[in-house]
Nucleic acid binder design. Structure first.
Lengths: 343, 343
DNA sequence: ATTAAAAATTAACGCGCGTAAAAATAAGAT
DNA sequence: ATCTTATTTTTACGCGCGTTAATTTTTAAT
C-alpha cells in the first residue's frame, strides 16, 4: 500500500500521473480511456487503494450505477431466492443492487419506490404485489425510470415483464394429474393479491375443460402472507369435511400445499400416489422446502435462474438503448413438472 | 402541490420563508430548530414536496443516517426474519437500513463490509459467519464504525453482541427430553461454521452430564448451506443403520431436523412422542416452517423480536454516546421451549 | 423596559467530483 | 515526415448541501 493516504481524486490523479478528468472518465467507464492510461491508473490503484466518493460521484452523474430491486416479501423463500439471483447478476455486471423488501405491505412498496427515486437508480426491477399495488405510483415510477417487472405482471406498467407461463405450467400439472389418477380439485385463497393466482385458476379451468373434466375450485378465507397457516387450517377443514370431490388437490402454490400436507398428516390421511394413499396433493413453484415435505411435494418448478437473468438482461438492454421502446416486452418461461411422492 | 418545482434547498428555503442554513439544520434534526420555524418548514413541506438530495447531504455530513445490516444468507428464513425486524426497527427510528446478504460466502461478507465503508454508515449490525468470517476485516471494520454483532458472536469484535443463550436453551430442551422419555442423541454438522453450533454441542454435553446421561454425538459430513439436504441424507443414513443409541435425536438446528424428519418419513418411521412412535426428533430455532412439518417440530424459539430490537437499540446507544465504550456488552436472551408433536 | 440567552440570518467557503471547452499531445495512416 | 484523428491536459465552473463566524433578531427572564 501507498505511504500517504489518498484523500480525493485530485491526489490520486497526481500519484497515477494522469489528469483528474481522465481519471474521472476511467471510473465512469474503464473502457473509455486508452489502454495505456488504463494500465497506469490500475497500477496506481493497486498501490494506493483509493475509492472515489460515491456520494460526490452520484451527485453529479446523470445516471448512477444503482439498480433497485423491490420484492413484496423477503420472508417468502420464493422472493429471497429470486432476489438473490437478481442481486448477483447485477453485481456481475458491475452495478450496485439495492434490495428492498416491502414486508407484505403495498404501502411500503410505494414508499420503497419513493426512496429509490432519491437514489437516482439507473433502473429498477420490481416484483409487484399486483392488484394490491398502488398502480398509479408504479406506473408513474415506470415513466421516470427504466422499470422491469418480474413474477407478477401489471398491464401497461413498466417497460417489460418477465415471469412464468402459468397457462402452460398449470396445464402440464393438470394433464399429469388427470393421466395418473383422479382429476384435480383446485385449492387457492379467496382473494389472492398476486395476479398469478388468477392466471392459475383460469388455466386450471381451461385445462380441465380441455380434458373434459368438471372443475372444482375451493377458496380459503384468510388474508396476509401466512399461506401455510391458511393452507393448514382451511385445507384441514375441507379435508375433515370431505369437501373435495376427488382424491386429488392442486394447490395454487407450494406454501398452501405445505400447509395442507401438514393438516393431512394431522388427520392421519396418507398423501401420495401409492395404493395405500388417501389423497394426492400437488403444488406450484418448487419452493425450496418442497423437497423435504412429507411426502415430498409434486410441483411445478419455475425457472428461477432464467427469470432472474432475463429480467436483469432486459433491464440492461433498456439502459443501453436509452430511449424507451414503444412495445412492452413480455417474456414467459415454461414451468417444469417436478414429480415427487405427493401426487 | 406547489406550482413551481423546487430544485434545491435554496429555493425551498425561499418559499418557506426560512434561511437555508436553518432549513439544513432542520433536515439534520427537526428538533434542533425552534417550534415556530419547524412549523413553517413543515407546512411548506406539505405544499411543495421537496426532498433534500441525499447524495449532497451525505457527502458533507459527518455521519449519515445509513445503517448497514449484513446477514450471512437471506435465503435462510432465520436471517430473513430477523433481518426483517431489524430493518423495520431502523426505519422506525428514522434511519435508512441497507440490507446486505453475503449469500453464504465469507468473501462476500468482507466485500459487503467494504461496500458499506463507502456509504459512511452511522453504524452496522452484523450477523457474522463466525469462524469462517474474515476476522481481521470484521475487527478492522469495528474499529472504524460502530458495530453490533448479533446471532453469532466473535470474541473482541465489534462493540456489542446480542444473541440467544444457547447453554440455557439447549439445557431446557435436554431437560425436557430426558424427563419425558429416552435421553437425546445430538445430531449436527461435522464442521459447522456458526459458533452457535459449537455452543450448542457444548451445552448438550454439559446438560447430559448434569442429568447423569451418556452423551452421544453424531456429526454429518457436508459443507454449505443445504442443511435440509444434509439432514435428510446423513440423518437418513444414520436412521437406516440404526446408529442412534436412543430413540431421541436433538438436532443442532431446525433445518437439519426438517431434513431428518423428511428422511424418517421416507423410511416409514413414525416420529413423535405417542405410544406408536419409533422416534423423537427435536430442533432449535423455531424456524417459520417448523409448525408445518410432519409432525410439527418440537423446538426452541429464539426471541427474534427481542434480539432484533436490542441489537438496534444497542447500536443507537453507541451512536449517541459517540465515544467507544471500553467494555464490550454481551446480551443473551433465553430460548423458549416450543412443544409440538415431534418430541 | 432591560437584559442575557437562544435562535435565526447573512455571507462565504468547501466537499469531491462531473463536465465542458479549448489547447496540447499522442497514435496511426499515408 | 505529414496529416488526420483520437486522447489527454488545462482551466474553470457548477452541483446541492454542510458548516462556520459574525451579526441581527427573537425569546424569556428580571
Amino acid at each position: 500500500m501507498g505511504q500517504l493516504k489518498i484523500r480525493n481524486m485530485e491526489e490520486f490523479a497526481a500519484v497515477s500521473g494522469i489528469s483528474r478528468p481522465t481519471v474521472s472518465k476511467y471510473f465512469n467507464d474503464p473502457e473509455s480511456v486508452r489502454a495505456s492510461t488504463r494500465k497506469k491508473i490500475e497500477s496506481a490503484l493497486e498501490k494506493h487503494d483509493y475509492h472515489p466518493n460515491v456520494f460526490a460521484m452520484n451527485q453529479n452523474r446523470r445516471k448512477t450505477k444503482n439498480i433497485g430491486v423491490v420484492v413484496p416479501n423477503l420472508a417468502d423463500p420464493f422472493f429471497s431466492e429470486i432476489g438473490r439471483r437478481v442481486e448477483l447478476a447485477c453485481i456481475e455486471a458491475g452495478y450496485s443492487p439495492i434490495l428492498l423488501s416491502s414486508h407484505g405491505s403495498p404501502t411500503m412498496e410505494r414508499d420503497n419506490l419513493n426512496s429509490l427515486r432519491s437514489l437516482k437508480p439507473a433502473g429498477v426491477l420490481l416484483a409487484p404485489f399486483g392488484r394490491m399495488s398502488d398502480k398509479d405510483a408504479v406506473q408513474a415510477f415506470g415513466a421516470d425510470f427504466p422499470l422491469v417487472l418480474f413474477d407478477a405482471n401489471m398491464s401497461d406498467t413498466g417497460q417489460a415483464f418477465v415471469g412464468t407461463n402459468n397457462a402452460q405450467s398449470v396445464d402440464l400439472m393438470v394433464e399429469y394429474l388427470c393421466r395418473s389418477g383422479e382429476p384435480p380439485c383446485f385449492f387457492e385463497m379467496k382473494s389472492p393479491s398476486n395476479p398469478n393466482a388468477n392466471k392459475r385458476r383460469q388455466a386450471y379451468l381451461e385445462s380441465m375443460e380441455r380434458h373434459k373434466q368438471t372443475p372444482n375450485i375451493f377458496q380459503a378465507d384468510g388474508e396476509g402472507w401466512n399461506f401455510e397457516e391458511i393452507g393448514s387450517v382451511e385445507g384441514g377443514r375441507l379435508l375433515l369435511e370431505k369437501a373435495f370431490s376427488t382424491n386429488t388437490v392442486l394447490c395454487s402454490n407450494d406454501r398452501l400445499a405445505i400447509g395442507m400436507l401438514s393438516a393431512a398428516y394431522g388427520l392421519d390421511l396418507r398423501v401420495g400416489h401409492g395404493a395405500d394413499c388417501h389423497l394426492r396433493i400437488a403444488g406450484h413453484d418448487d419452493h425450496p422446502f418442497s423437497r423435504f415435505t412429507c411426502p415430498p411435494l409434486t410441483t411445478i418448478a419455475q425457472d428461477y435462474n432464467a427469470i432472474a437473468n432475463r429480467a436483469v438482461s432486459t433491464l440492461f438492454g433498456l439502459l443501453e438503448t436509452e430511449e424507451r421502446p414503444s412495445d412492452r416486452e413480455e417474456t414467459l418461461f415454461e414451468g417444469r413438472l417436478i414429480m415427487r411422492d405427493s401426487a
